[in-house]
Computed example of a mutant assay.
Amino acid sequence: MDLNLGITGPAQSDDLYHFTGRLGERPNDVPQRIREMTPQQRLDAIIAERMLRAFPPFGANVPCVCFSEASPEHLAFLVKERKVEPWGILGRRNSLLSLGGGSVAYVPDQQYQYFKNTGMAHWAVRVGTNSTWMHEREWRIPRQNGEIKLASVSAILIGDANWRPSLVETEEWVNAETGEQCQGPAETPHAQPRQDHPTLWRESAIWIWDDESESVIKHPPGALC
């Protein structure tokens, strides 16, 4: 579905980031094993599995995958001032809307309670006393089954130019003794699956956060394989 979203103004962005690391607590429904992973490890799993896992946000009971809308200037603010880790994947407004996602409403307590009473709390963020989330510019994709399979992403964001994802097995075979390609175990007992970078890494643009310039350095698909 191709949606005509009109013009994006200078305070807005078509770039929507699913960050894999940030300061602060995580919702109780996030498993302990995921809580204990580093941002790099979470991103590694996303790239290998081609999957985003959804969990209910604070104050809601519908599993969602969350994104933050960020222009280049706002991304720098999130990383430098809000201590968001520059690791994650990048989507676009059109893609999120086509998956049933959208931006959340930032509302006072009374209106938030209305959202909650109607089972729509996952579409709202409370901005009453002690609320500290307005800087997020948050978007969410609700997923009752708890996951989103990734056919592609707009880009992969990493915070270290030397980082690469874990290698995965491919459908091709190599002779472990010679290193040459072969037809599989039927040809030689030394056959083993060839390993390579995950498809998502090879087919996506890679954006590297650069602390000095407070911006990203963009590489086309396949450049960092």
Results as ranks from 00 to 15, higher is better:
I158P: 02
D160I: 06
G179K: 01
G179A: 13
R164D: 08
H190F: 13
N145S: 11
V153C: 09
R143G: 00
P193V: 04
D160T: 10
R140V: 05
E172N: 12
S152R: 11
G146Y: 05
S154F: 14
E138F: 07
Q192H: 00
R143W: 03
S154H: 14
G159I: 07
E169C: 10
Q181S: 15
E147F: 10
N162G: 12
L167V: 14
E147R: 04
I158V: 15
K149A: 04
A186K: 15
H190L: 06
L167Q: 14
W133Y: 11
L157W: 02
E171D: 13
P189Q: 14
V168L: 05
I156M: 02
H190P: 01
S166Y: 12
Q192I: 11
T178Q: 07
A191H: 00
W163Y: 15
C182I: 11
V153D: 05
A191S: 13
E177F: 03
N162S: 15
A186T: 15
S166L: 10
V174C: 02
R164E: 13
N175Q: 02
A161H: 04
V174G: 02
I158S: 00
H190K: 05
A176T: 06
W163I: 10
I141V: 15
I156V: 13
W133L: 09
S152A: 15
R194Q: 15
R140A: 09
H135I: 08
T188A: 12
E138M: 09
E172Y: 12
N175G: 03
A161P: 02
I141D: 00
I148D: 02
T178I: 06
N175V: 06
V174P: 03
P185D: 11
N175M: 01
N145C: 05
E171M: 06
Q192S: 00
D160N: 15
L157Y: 07
E177H: 02
E138S: 04
C182Q: 02
W163E: 09
E177G: 01
L157A: 11
W163L: 11
E136Y: 10
T178Y: 08
E138C: 01
W173L: 05
G146L: 06
E169G: 03
R140M: 00
L157T: 02
P193Y: 11
Q181N: 12
R140G: 03
S154G: 14
H190V: 03
K149D: 06
G184N: 12
E136P: 04
I158L: 01
C182Y: 06
T132M: 08
H135S: 11
E147G: 02
C182T: 13
E180W: 10
N162W: 09
L157V: 09
W173P: 10
A191W: 10
E136W: 09
E171K: 06
L157Q: 08
C182K: 04
R140H: 01
S131P: 04
V153F: 08
H135R: 06
E180Y: 14
P185N: 13
G159L: 10
T132Q: 12
E177I: 12
L157K: 08
G179I: 13
P193E: 04
P142Q: 01
W139A: 07
L167T: 13
I141H: 00
E187H: 12
E172P: 00
R194L: 15
W173D: 11
